[in-house]
Design a protein around this nucleic acid. Sequence first.
DNA 1: ACAGTGTATTCGAAAATTCGAATATTCTAA
DNA 2: TTAGAATATTCGAATTTTCGAATACACTGT
Lengths: 114, 114
Amino acid sequence: MPDSLRRFKAEIFQALAHPTRIAILELLGAGEASAGDLVEKLGIEQANISQHLAVLRSKQLVVNRKAGNQVFYSVRDPILNDVLALMRRYFQNHLQEAYEMLGEMAQAPAESEK
Amino acid sequence: MPDSLRRFKAEIFQALAHPTRIAILELLGAGEASAGDLVEKLGIEQANISQHLAVLRSKQLVVNRKAGNQVFYSVRDPILNDVLALMRRYFQNHLQEAYEMLGEMAQAPAESEK
DNA sequence: ACAGTGTATTCGAAAATTCGAATATTCTAA
DNA sequence: TTAGAATATTCGAATTTTCGAATACACTGT
């Protein structure tokens, strides 16, 4: 496989390599959401969400649709959802280590739980 | 989903987010290989391969087995191969854009082709 | 035209990643 | 024990990523 193709793949993974962007994609997996929805559901700075959306857009992982004031985002290719689903299985298989790797966890309950 | 779990996922993706590490994992998908094999097949500095292997080890994506002088690596969980396979399908779907995104490509033939 | 709401961009500064060079470590064979 | 091969680690500089703050832009209603 050409190295240039691997560079492309690496860029996609790079786009996935941030907790906030994973959260965004998981939310979008359930269907379209506006930028504002994401800000509200994730409890993260508007500017920051917008920056992460810019990353996802630049790698074409999401598409957007403007409706008046708002911009609605969705996952472009359902394969991405499959990838995330596979990863969920992976994490179930290795939850143990996940916890160990993260070390804290026990007392760090994380802000935005559902 | 807890934020800490998303951080863990992001770390896995981060580990996948480098062309050399993708190349390593794709090679290992075909079966065990020694560090030296990887150096030779990828044509990359020994120290650098070793650094990338350290990243993959630290995220537990690979396991290693020492045999005398050498260290043999393999992918720990076959799900990873599935993820990479899914990604290959993704790239086929979007090859067009991949080429556009990479821009150069036409004249950048990449060093290590098969 | 103006104000207000929703979203995007720009600008630093701090943190993380990457690589080659140099050096260590570990094992084997003599 | 010494030499050599295979692999790993450390160091520092260059690059990239990340975030908040400030600002810009776009659309709507009045």
